[in-house]
Simulated assay, not measured.
Amino acid sequence: MWRRRDVVSARDFDRRDLEDLFETAKYMEKYAKSRVEFLKGRVMAVAFFEPSTRTRLSFETAMKRLGGEVVGFWGAEGTSVEKGETLADTVRMLDAYSDLIVIRHRYEGAAKLAAEVAENPVVNGGDGASNHPTQAMLDLYTIWREFGYIDGLNIGVVGDLRHARTVNSLLEALTNFNVKVFLISPEYLRPRTETVDYIRSRGLRHSFHTSLEEVLRELDVLYVVRIQKERFLDPLEYERVRGSYRISLDMLKNAKRHLAILHPLPRVDEIDHKVDSTPHAKYFKQAALGVPLRMALIYLILMGP
C-alpha cells in the first residue's frame, strides 16, 4: 500500500512495492511530456536546503505534469531559516500549505525528523550521505526498463561508495532482488559499515574490488558515482583518491555488448564524454525517466491504494 506513505529510506519498501511503482511509472511515461489533471488542486511543497538540479526539477515537473501545483524554496536564503527558524517549525509551516513535502538537507536524519513532525507525507530528496531513496527507485526502474527484469544481473558499483548516498540507497533496494553486486573502490571509500552489515543480513551477494578492469567483462550494469569533493573534510584526502576510476572507450572494449552504464549525475571526469555516443551510455535516459518515476511516486502517495 502506497497511499500517504512517507519515503524516508529505501529499507522501507519491499519488492512488491517497487514492482507496483515500476508498473505505474511505465504507465506515466505516456504523460511525461504532456499534462493530465490527476492531481488538480493538490499542492507539493519542496524544501531544498542543498543544491539540486535533477531531483528538484524532476519532482517539480512530475507534479505539474500531474496537474498539481508546487510551492517551496531552493536554499535557505530569503527564508525564515536565516532568522533562526528550526527545521521542525519550517516543516510545520510547509505542512499547513501543502499535501506533500519533498525535502533535501545536508544533515542525516533531516527527512526522518520532517516525517515525524508533518501530518502529510514526506519524501526524502536526499539527506546527508545516508539516504536518497527516490534515486534508488529511479536507478532500479532504469535497469528494469532497459532489460525487462532485474533478477540474475551482475551489477558493478564504482567510485566513492562511502560518501555517496545514492549508493547506500541503491544497495539497500537491491536486497529485494536476486543479483550479484561488485563493489569497486579504493579500500578507503568502501561502503559504510552499517550499509554492508544491512546488505549482508539481507543476503545480497556482493564482493569487494579495487580494480574495475578485473571484473568489467562480468558486468551487465555499471553504476558510476563521482568522488564527492564536498563530502571530504580534508582536501588532501580528496586529492589522494580523485580520478581513481575513469570510464573510457578503450576500457569498454572488454565489456559485454549489452553493458548499461548508469550515473546519478552530475559527473565530473569519471566518464569520458566520448562514451556518451556509445550504446552503453544510459545515464541521460536514466535522468529523463526521473519524471515518470516521480510522477508515479507522487500519484501513488496521494491517490494510490
Rank of each mutant, 00 (worst) to 15 (best):
P121A: 09
I103S: 00
T134Q: 07
A136F: 02
H132E: 04
R104L: 03
V122K: 08
V123E: 02
I103V: 15
I103G: 06
T134D: 09
A110M: 02
Y107I: 10
E119F: 10
S130L: 14
N120G: 02
E116C: 06
T134G: 12
H132P: 11
A115I: 12
A115G: 09
N120M: 01
R104N: 04
A118R: 09
H105M: 11
H132N: 12
Y107M: 15
P133C: 05
V122E: 04
A111P: 06
G109Q: 12
V123N: 03
A136L: 06
R104V: 00
L113A: 04
N124R: 10
V123K: 02
A110L: 01
D127P: 10
A111M: 04
Q135P: 13
R106G: 00
P133M: 04
V117E: 09
G109L: 13
A115H: 11
A115K: 13
V123A: 05
E108N: 13
Q135R: 10
E116P: 05
G109M: 13
N124F: 07
A110P: 14
A118W: 14
G126Y: 01
V117G: 05
A114I: 06
N131S: 13
K112I: 05
G125I: 11
L113H: 00
L113Q: 01
T134Y: 13
D127E: 08
E119W: 01
T134W: 12
G126R: 11
L113M: 14
G109E: 13
P121L: 07
N131T: 02
N124I: 08
P121E: 12
T134K: 10
A118I: 00
Y107C: 05
A114K: 11
E116H: 08
R106M: 09
H105Q: 08
P133G: 08
A129K: 10
Q135L: 09
E116M: 02
I103W: 08
A114R: 08
E108V: 12
A114N: 02
V122C: 09
G126H: 00
A129Q: 08
V122P: 05
H105K: 09
